[in-house]
Design a protein around this nucleic acid. Sequence first.
DNA 1: TGGGTTTGACCAGAC
DNA 2: CGTCTGGTCAAACCC
Length: 418
Amino acid sequence: MDNDDCDLFSILHSCNANTFQTLPPPQNLITTSTITNNIISPQNTTPSYFDDFSLTQENRSVSFSPLKPTDFIELDKLKTNFNPTTTILASPTSIPIPTHKTTSIITNTINHDSNQNFKFFDFPTLIPEPQMQTTDITTHIPTINNLTTNIPSATFANPSLPSNIFTTSSTTAAPSITTMINTSTSFHGTNNYPKIHNSPNVFEQQQIQQNQNNHLSSIKPVTCIEITKAHFDLAYNHPSFSKQYTTDCNQLPNLQPHTDPQQELCKNRKRKFDNQKIVEWHISVDKLGEDPWEWRKYGQKPIKGSRHLRDYYKCSNFKDCVAKKQVEKKPNKENIYVVTYIGEHNHPKPVVNWPPHKKSSKKKSSNVKKYGSLSNIRNSGSQNMVMSHIDQPECSNAQVHRRQSKVKKTNDNHMLET
DNA sequence: TGGGTTTGACCAGAC
DNA sequence: CGTCTGGTCAAACCC
Ligand SMILES: [Zn+2]
């Protein structure tokens, strides 16, 4: 996976209300300041769902400004203290529980030596540092100004918001038994520092067991950050954020600061996902088809400030499931899509019809039935799902609503999409 | 006939 | 209070 994945990381950054710089890409692939999901495994690993997911900041540096204790400290940890060599080799039920502080050196070295003692608790968010005080934040957070310099571990104060860090293990050989481990961190209550509690449910345990029985050992862990509505609220409404950031309306905060007054107008707009879990992935187009859930598309909208349409999907596996997802092509990124999952499924992951019949290799969203063909746009007289994600002129205020009617008036998608 | 996508219209919240 | 915007609905259409 390429550096596009750094954008999930940018989400976390954006919550911190600091300024960012974009540096030229490093000349060497082995760089520092990288949060990634390096896999250290002696087994043959095959590509699977989201297995290339990583948190990366290879070509960015971050300037820290003084933080408030209520800022997204816990999210910032992911950047400043994450050891990219961390991996999980054991079965999902045997993830080590972090018990002590560790100092991590952020490198981008991919290590395939399974004998090394990689510890999941190298992940910074999972590190308890009870000795820290909130007033020490600014003096302990390192300034990353040299990508080739080892960065000492940062220290952080009490996180202000709950956040979960998922670790998923997946395999292509039997995607139906792909499981998401309930390895999460909790900042609730009196727990000043996150704890890992591994609590896979029965269904997941069955999947794990099935995995073991099938001798499928190519478990490939990936990490995903759960973003709650509270994070969005704080990210959009934080006064520092308002001063230093602009965001594409209803989009996640943009890494690149700009001063477009039009977009300033909507910097505080929020998605309306009340009390729902939000998990965002930035994945390549070829991974879209590996989503094991089944989805039914119920809407499509042009998004202001974006050149791409956003598709809205509901889970169609279960009648009363409230899980939704949104798929949107990443601006200026080829073959990278932003997939946002909202809410949780209230049913087990489908296992019967896996792998799904891929009617088209270009299918935009996995398990989404569609009609017509890519080559015959007139078939339906409407936009093609794939075509809808081709670059378009960036939306402005008034253009957003006009776009859909404009689309309908012309059956020539290229007129609009290019 | 059932379930999917498409897409204009509508709604609610932010501004 | 009107406008803007993202999210959703639902009729029409397709397979
Ligand atoms: Zn569902």
